[in-house]
Amino acid sequence: MKAATLSAVLIFFLAASVSAQTDEEKKFLYREVPDVSIQLLNRRASLLAFCKEEPTIISLAYSRCAGICYPFLLTLRDNLAEAEKEEKKFRVLIISFDEKDTQENMQTMAGAIHPQNTSRWFFGTIERSQIKTFTQAVGFTFTLDSLSGQLNHPPIVIGVNGDGTIVRIVKKFDISNNELWQVYHEIEDEFVPFYKENIATSISCFTYDSRKGKFIVSWGMLLLYTPAILVAILVWRIFSIKKIAGVQK
């Protein structure tokens, strides 16, 4: 009984500590993107107005990054090219969160990434005083490494639909293709009912095909029906035993 009490107490404290985090985590989805002003390569714009023109995928990067930025953006570029083959229409906006980045830096970055469909890719900077407003609104944090002068940060993909509402934020080092496909669907207001990566080893009735945006019947379904088949065989076997003499018709 002691164990029960102890764990009840433990769980209570655990719960208390969890709910304390609530405010910090609160919360970035289903809100309008902040109306900060951005400087694109050829024009100045309001981010909100820009996003309301078309569904947009926003990623944050900075030009002198020696870490994740370039490899990540290249992967995003290739993945996007694939999505475009399937007629997904959206814009990609890469904005810098580094105060030091200039128009020229972003121009160079655009050249390095070299997207196929240049008309749908936009590079730019945020108004210096509004960088914090933006990063806070999407829950993006970074730290300055004083030795190297580099900014430590996770890669981030922010999906914004045509209403300028943030519908998905994926923030981790190993963003998979499936997750990106889910973002593509979400920004076109196609509901994605699944938020976890398909774990290869798990057995389920349906798997979510992130690319097609559909559930497909999976072999886990068999688990629900094999018992009935097994029992049919078993019962047939049981009833084929020899009848007691004299009771057979």
Partner: peptide, 13 residues
């Protein structure tokens, strides 16, 4: 958006 967890709800709004 609603996230439920032991033992609270987090709502985006």
């Amino acid at each position: 958006g609603v996230k439920a967890r032991m033992f609270s709800f987090v709502l985006t709004k």
